[in-house]
């Protein structure tokens, strides 16, 4: 199973598309590792510098409709090779969400109000997140403040996360 803990990258915008996560010109790569330095290269977000801001981050927290547009699984892969296996958002585009779980990664939806509170409390500060999959709770920590946020995950999605993805699961079962 992958790791779902570490420093948080806050992306304060809705509708971040997969062209922004990994531009099409890198789709000629045939290894995941080759995508590493291009993650979020074309993201339109004021004050965001991919080289500076992506380094050492392990979790993304963002707004609505994350991962819309192209079906490219290169988007989750570009996150994965940077050690980011967890994205938290108000909601996701269908294909991106399914690609994440298919890779044994987590795309977790939280209510708009909860996400908004997370931005108010933690964005702009050095924030660490620990995921407790036994209790379905995220623990956010920044300086002295700690916040527990419960989440839900379906049994099938959890099975994919535990199996490390859909290929082995499907081939064994069907």
């Amino acid at each position: 199973m992958k790791e779902f803990n570490g420093k948080v990258l806050f992306l304060n915008r809705s509708d971040i598309n997969t062209d922004e996560i990994i531009p099409a010109k890198y789709l000629t790569e045939i290894t995941k590792e080759a995508l590493k330095s291009f993650l979020l290269e074309d993201l339109t977000l004021e004050g965001f510098d991919p080289k500076r801001d992506v380094a050492e981050k392990k979790v993304v927290v963002t707004r609505a409709n994350f991962g819309c547009g192209s079906s490219r699984e290169h988007a989750p892969w570009a996150l994965e090779v940077n050690g980011i296996n967890l994205v938290i958002a108000e909601n996701f585009a269908r294909i991106f969400r399914q690609n994440m779980y298919n890779c044994g990664m987590i795309a977790c939806e939280l209510p708009e109000k909860t996400v908004d509170d997370l931005f108010k409390e933690f964005a702009g500060k050095e924030t660490e997140l620990a995921t407790d999959l036994s209790r379905n709770v995220f623990v956010f920590k920044s300086g002295a403040s700690t916040k527990e946020v419960p989440f839900s995950i379906s049994g099938f999605d959890k099975a994919l996360v535990e199996a490390g993805g859909w290929v082995e699961y499907a081939d064994a079962k069907y």
Binding site: R72, I95, Q98, N99, N102, W166, A170, D171, Y174
Partner: peptide
């Protein structure tokens, strides 16, 4: 769909 679903589609002819 993404590449993993495509893989399983190619292999098993199914998709979720």
């Amino acid at each position: 769909i993404g590449t993993t679903d495509l893989e399983v589609g190619i292999l098993k002819g199914i998709c979720t």
